[in-house]
């Protein structure tokens, strides 16, 4: 089963998104900070990271920058999940980090599932 790591500082979002991902037929794990995400990624392989951007301490953008700078992780699939309306594109500075998707919170369940499936294959 494909593994998804969800990174968000809000417990209720973590729980709910995990329910959604699990229910879609994947195996979700959650961490509530960027630092913990990097630690988890260092010890285990994930097929996708769902990354919040605005978090205390390390922001999601910084986390992805670190991932892209790490030779072992640089090809890791990462999707952002954030509250800003940016459409499918996201910003240039975000795009440069090559996220595979860009989910806008609040997500619509149906749409989220379709896109998640597309990303994970």
């Amino acid at each position: 089963m494909k593994k998804v790591l969800i990174v968000d500082d809000e417990e209720d979002i973590l729980t709910s998104v995990k329910m959604l991902v699990d229910d879609s037929g994947y195996e979700a794990e959650t961490v509530n900070s960027g630092a913990k995400a990097l630690k988890a990624l260092g010890s285990k392989k994930y097929d996708l990271v769902l990354l919040d951007i605005l978090m205390p301490g390390m922001s999601g953008k910084e986390v992805l920058e670190k991932i892209r700078a790490d030779p072992k992780l640089k090809n890791q699939k990462v999707a952002f999940m954030t509250v800003v309306q940016l459409g499918k594109q996201g910003e240039d500075s975000i795009q440069a980090l090559k996220p595979v998707e860009y989910f806008e919170k609040p997500v619509r369940v149906g749409d989220f599932r379709t896109r998640l499936q597309k990303v994970l294959g």
Binding site: I13, M19, L20, V83, K105, P106, V107, V109
Partner: peptide
């Protein structure tokens, strides 16, 4: 405002939708 309003709505939406769809 945008962060603080959308943050609580995110789990609310997921739960309400999953409930309504019978996913739970």
């Amino acid at each position: 405002t945008s962060h603080e309003l959308k943050t609580p709505i995110t789990p609310l939406m997921i739960q309400a939708q999953m409930l309504a769809r019978g996913d739970l």
